[in-house]
Design a protein around this nucleic acid. Sequence first.
DNA 1: GTCTATAGCCCGATAGAC
DNA 2: GTCTATCGGGCTATAGAC
Lengths: 193, 193
Amino acid sequence: MTAVELRRTDILHASAELFADKGVASTTVRQIAARVGVQSGALYHYFPSKSAIVREVVTTYLEQLKARYDEAAPRELDPRARLRAIVEVSLRTAEESPHATVVYQNELPNLRDDPDYRDAKKLADEAQQIWLETINDGKRTGVFREDVPTKVFHRFIRDAVWLSIKWRHPEDAYTTEDLTRDCLTIFLDGFAT
Amino acid sequence: MTAVELRRTDILHASAELFADKGVASTTVRQIAARVGVQSGALYHYFPSKSAIVREVVTTYLEQLKARYDEAAPRELDPRARLRAIVEVSLRTAEESPHATVVYQNELPNLRDDPDYRDAKKLADEAQQIWLETINDGKRTGVFREDVPTKVFHRFIRDAVWLSIKWRHPEDAYTTEDLTRDCLTIFLDGFAT
DNA sequence: GTCTATAGCCCGATAGAC
DNA sequence: GTCTATCGGGCTATAGAC
């Protein structure tokens, strides 16, 4: 990695942390520069604009997520195992990249129609497609119930998984493995006795 | 209602809509004024600051929500019926006040330590307490499983309910009643066959 | 009670020295 | 490649006329 690439990575990490904590709109390029330890003008040698930083944070994150889904949750798996793999990969990715995860969850929905984020939107759609495909395959093979719309179940479990980043603290005794297990328990078998 | 009160209400409604669409930080007082049909300076005859508008949007909303919980979900109800009532009231409130709901979900988490929002935070805590109490009562009486932490189940169902405001459109054939039913089905009985 | 005008500040981004 | 300095503009909030 060249010195330039290292600095770019520094900027992306500092930005992701600030964006996650206070939102993109409330984060200034001066704050990013201060976190990295340079003056704000220096950032513009690495990125053409603040918006380009946001875009790269989200796009890099989604590329990694999509690659992990493809590897860990191939279509050959039966729907239950595939759903488990998707949940595991998602929670592991959220644990590993908590800031980018928050930025993706908080900001991408509001940026859908901005052409600058077309790549990110495309990747997010592909990732979502893997969830939907899994749920529909499970309905077709009879392991999932057909009386609840795919879209509805998807939103429920998807939000449970991704928003755990906002309430679960990594130092908790309650681990990612615990969360994965409880998530699959609730969503597949229910909370009633 | 006096003319002043009517104007205040206009401002609160216009603000809630803008805050929900673009976030509080990205909404300007000029945009609020334009939506109401006055100049920005005129807003300051009704509210001392932009932040006071945000505070009143959220606090008024939460007071209404809390009152509805108290009325529709008294502790005398058995836990299953009480959970159903909470979900029903929440979804009905979200449908009726979609903008304030989004503001509450999106912005309050980031404002927790701001002393300006102490009242809102207190109301939100009281509302949350009703969910937790219901879940714990259900565990004690044996209708809910005890191997999933209360906090975890609460976050799952709470997020499913509140975030539906971001994906369900009121004009959908899929109604609030459908959503209430499917939410209780999934979270109590599970998605597996 | 609403207007016009603007103070005072902070923003993203740029220019040019080193 | 990073600095200092600053431009042009948008922001919240205020002042004072009507």
